[in-house]
Simulated assay, not measured.
Amino acid sequence: MQKFAPSLLVMALGVALAGCQDNGPQDPKVSINKNPYPSTYQPLASQSTLITNATVLTGTGERLDNADVFFVDGKVQQVGKDLSVQADKTIDAEGKWVTPGIIDVHSHLGAYPTPSVASHQDGNEMTSPVTAEVWVEHSVWPQDPGFNRAREGGITSLQILPGSANLIGGRGVTLKNIPSHTMQGMKFPDAPYGLKMACGENPKRVYGRKGVLPSTRMGNMAGYRTAWIEATEYKREWDKYESDYAAGKNPAAPHRDIKLDTLAGVLEGDILIHNHCYKAEEMAMMIDLGKEFGYHSGTFHHGVEAYKIADLLAENGNCAALWPDWWGFKMEAYDMVQ
């Protein structure tokens, strides 16, 4: 039987006890505020209103002639003919049309106000091909007269996107089209954030002139992939921090990077992709890019060649947001069908 000196036994016992000691409380957990500019939107005061004798498009493919619409507190309560309701106000809409409010899914109002002056041109941060750190809501000027014109045209909600100079141009924001002195007063409560990406001619033209990547479509793809690799590693670091903290290991928080916060939000499914992309082959590559890095490639805006790959878009659950009749103004916009 092996014998130990008393001093060695004391040392061994001390080591064992030290391993069982409480290392004290953990440092406060570092959390990222995902909504630091919250909505303060409040519906405008309104009377109960009955619209009569209108041609009504329900928004579900149905047309009702000589019909009525009754709404209370800004929300439609009934649609039909000869409604028997008590309303504070009645509007005779004979000879007029009533439709649901129009949602503009791709707008630059507030970030590119009208009339156009240089001091208000805040929709493109053309200082780097990847500017996921910028949020277009920080550029929105709520007093842009364009919001009034849009309201006159029936547009009640808008997604404001940054422009398409960059491969990844920043976050979009969804607004209620109401008069307000602040962006937060227009911000659509609980709407998810979107991230603007851009394919094709715009980023390669803007940065090719500066002599930096990208200057080609292959440079575009390399730029996206580099950004998503960085985001994947960043997310892995924060996931490990969360796991280690939950296990009581008192880890040090990773370095915070607001560009990678946004890209990681896409990888987590919290932020939706809105991709400026005209050409069929580029949309197909962007779908594969999303699969490579584990995110959904979202909606293709301006996708004039979407008709060529309608089956692929349907298979992958991608949307296409198009103009009704604007095309042919540059090379990638020519192969359109009406």
Rank of each mutant, 00 (worst) to 15 (best):
S215Q: 08
I168P: 01
R205D: 10
R217G: 04
V173W: 11
M197F: 07
T216C: 08
Y245Q: 02
Y245H: 06
V212A: 06
K176L: 12
L175D: 07
L161C: 08
G170R: 02
I160E: 05
T182D: 03
Q184L: 04
Y207K: 05
K210S: 10
S215L: 02
M221S: 10
A198I: 00
P162A: 13
M218R: 10
M221E: 13
M186E: 05
P214F: 00
Y245S: 05
G208A: 11
I160S: 00
M183D: 05
Y234W: 11
R236G: 06
G219L: 09
L167H: 04
G185M: 09
T232K: 15
E230N: 14
G163N: 11
L175P: 02
A198M: 03
T174E: 12
L175Y: 10
A246N: 12
T226R: 15
G169K: 04
E201W: 03
D190K: 09
T216G: 07
W228L: 14
T226S: 14
N177F: 14
Q184R: 13
V206T: 11
Y193I: 02
A165Q: 06
V212C: 07
T226L: 15
Q184G: 00
L213Y: 01
G163R: 00
Y193E: 12
P214W: 03
P203L: 05
A227M: 14
Y245D: 06
Y241N: 09
S215K: 14
N220C: 14
M183N: 03
M186N: 00
L158Q: 14
Y224N: 01
